[in-house]
Amino acid sequence: MKYMTIQEVQCIGDLTGFDERLNDLMNALLDLEDTDSAVEDPDLAATITDGVVDVQMIVEADDPADAMVKALCFLRSAIHSIGDATPGWETQRAVMHVAPADATDRLLADA
């Protein structure tokens, strides 16, 4: 089954050149997509001033938990491939949203 995943992560430290790092990260995500048929359509959005990045992708997996693990590993690989580190990022500054790809309205909350 295909799942839409959205990972919200926050980059810490000096944000000088953050926009260039985001370009590098997007290119790394696209490069990894070419090597992994279980992941498609990676995309990202960010708030440059505070270092918050939302990374979205479709992941084919057996269940939502497997989709989360796959998306987490995929993003971690992309971050490492551009020379950045990820110590504690998945527990200290991250949120993961997962829903069936054909029911992405479940990812939206009512205001």
Rank of each mutant, 00 (worst) to 15 (best):
A103W: 00
P64Q: 03
P42G: 03
Q10R: 15
F74W: 12
E20F: 08
H97N: 10
T5E: 03
A99R: 01
D105M: 06
H80W: 12
Q10C: 10
T35D: 15
T49V: 10
N27P: 00
I48F: 12
A109Y: 04
L44P: 11
I48R: 14
T47M: 08
P42D: 04
D43K: 06
V55K: 03
A46P: 04
Q7D: 11
D43C: 04
Q10T: 15
D54W: 12
D63M: 02
L108D: 03
M4S: 09
E8I: 04
L107Q: 04
V59N: 06
G88A: 03
D105G: 12
A78M: 10
D110R: 07
G13H: 01
E20I: 07
D66T: 09
S37H: 07
T49N: 08
Q92P: 01
A101D: 12
C11L: 10
D31T: 12
P87H: 08
D43W: 07
M4P: 00
A111E: 11
A78N: 10
L29P: 06
I6A: 13
G17R: 05
Y3D: 04
T16W: 12
T47N: 15
D102N: 10
T47H: 14
A71D: 05
D62T: 11
K70L: 07
A46H: 07
G51S: 08
A94D: 08
L15C: 05
T5P: 03
